[in-house]
Design a protein around this nucleic acid. Structure first.
Length: 344
RNA sequence: GGACGGGUGGGUGAGUGGCUAAAACCAGCAGACUGUAAAUCUGCCGCUCCUUGCGGGCUACGGAGGUUCGAAUCCUCCCCCGUCCA
């Protein structure tokens, strides 16, 4: 990659200078229904990029409508990555995401394309950019045993177990939060080391990228409105049929992706026959809460440049494009590069 | 017109003399999060003041009076809603 010097430009992200050893990466963060995909696709056109989904639900094959996967048209226009990686019976994890996303990044770097992430799942993005502790992966057998203990003797007992292994972690985690208690105990037992120690040992952050984080934060009331509209649109475009088809294909109702918002409710409705308005209310409700949680997470994400509108609003696109202008030069370089290579 | 039942904080709804600014749930807001993360969990939630404390003041259980040291809770009248009878 050709070297590129940028100076006296206020849009350069903090602490980063773009030079020959560094390439850039754009991440669009925002709550569900804030227009991330749309913005990402537009940016991809403008800056010669490809879209990489950072979403724990979109990796599931066959779960398309309710996870708001980009349309096939969009996917034809601009290559998308990290979609449809596993089936309903498989479990996906943050570590797996990191691993595979790094491969995608390497590929894009080689082809001189700008990676543009659409980030819905904050944990996955953090796993990629900041790395994960060197902790053991999940062990379902152990988890099952621990969950059984939790079931029988309650959360406080789990917490006591953890206290013996890792007092600091036990202090931090509520006795009601069995999921996190079990994970912490699991790690201690498997690693022979406390979770706190493992965390303390540090992690391996992503190297060689200037990360441009674009935050979308449309007005709350409008976001909630959009969520409601989108739920209706999804149902109109055959969400219910999708759920039926999945069930017919054998996807069991305890499968991971049936925990996702909407899939859970629609799957239940198949059995209980609840009236549709109830189901819709439940889905929009859960989605709103989810959007709030996402915002809580993203607010904490360092060095985000926030934009107040929806990603599909022309003003937002213009503002973001202006902010990313330094990348345009790179993009030109990239194109020249590619052309030169093609000419050879 | 008569007989019951009921009117409680944004919603549902418990509370039948003090421990009640009022359970619980929902909604709302804020927060946490290192391999389940669209998951899981935590806090706040009448108004207001400060020295932010299991702190002070004010307002509150349809309305107005009353009984009582003390009332969402008891009494009287009124208003409204529901069901039934005419």
């Amino acid at each position: 990659m050709t070297s590129l010097v940028i100076s006296g430009n206020s849009s350069v992200p903090p602490k980063m200078l773009v030079d020959s050893s560094t390439s850039s990466l754009v991440a669009v963060l925002g709550p569900t229904a804030s227009g991330k995909s749309s913005l990402a696709v537009s940016l991809a056109h403008e800056f010669g990029g490809e879209v990489i989904a950072c979403d724990s639900t979109q990796v599931y094959r066959g779960f398309d409508i309710g996870t708001a996967k980009p349309s096939t048209a969009e996917r034809r226009e601009i290559p998308h990555h990290m979609l449809d990686l596993v089936t309903w019976s498989e479990l996906f994890t943050a570590g797996e995401y990191r691993h595979r996303a790094l491969e995608v990044l390497a590929d894009l770097r080689q082809r001189s394309r700008l990676p543009i992430f659409t980030v819905g799942t904050g944990l996955y993005f953090r796993a990629l950019t900041q790395g994960l502790a060197d902790a053991p992966t999940r062990c379902d057998e152990l988890r099952n045993r621990l969950n059984a203990i939790g079931e029988r003797r309650g959360g406080p007992h789990l917490r006591n177990l953890l206290r013996r292994l890792d007092p600091l972690a036990a202090e931090r985690i509520s006795s009601n939060d069995r999921q996190k208690l079990v994970r912490a105990i699991e790690v201690c037992l498997l690693a022979g080391q406390s979770l706190t120690e493992l965390h303390h040992a540090g992690r391996e952050p992503l190297q060689g990228y200037a990360v441009w984080k674009i935050g979308l934060n449309p007005p709350r009331a409008e976001l909630y409105q959009r969520i409601e509209q989108r739920v209706h649109r999804m149902l109109d475009s055959g969400w219910g049929a999708e759920v039926w088809a999945l069930a017919v294909q054998g996807a069991t109702k305890t499968a991971k992706p049936f925990e996702f918002i909407g899939y859970r409710e629609l799957r239940d409705q198949m059995e209980t026959g609840q009236p549709l308005p109830h189901v819709i209310a439940a889905i929009t409700q859960a989605t709103r809460r989810y959007a709030k949680r996402q915002l809580t997470w993203f607010r904490r994400e360092p060095e985000v440049r926030w934009f107040p509108g929806f990603g599909d609003a022309p003003e937002t696109l213009a503002a973001v494009a202006e902010y990313l202008e330094p990348l345009l030069a790179q993009s030109t370089e990239r194109t020249r590069h590619t052309q030169r290579r093609e000419a050879v």
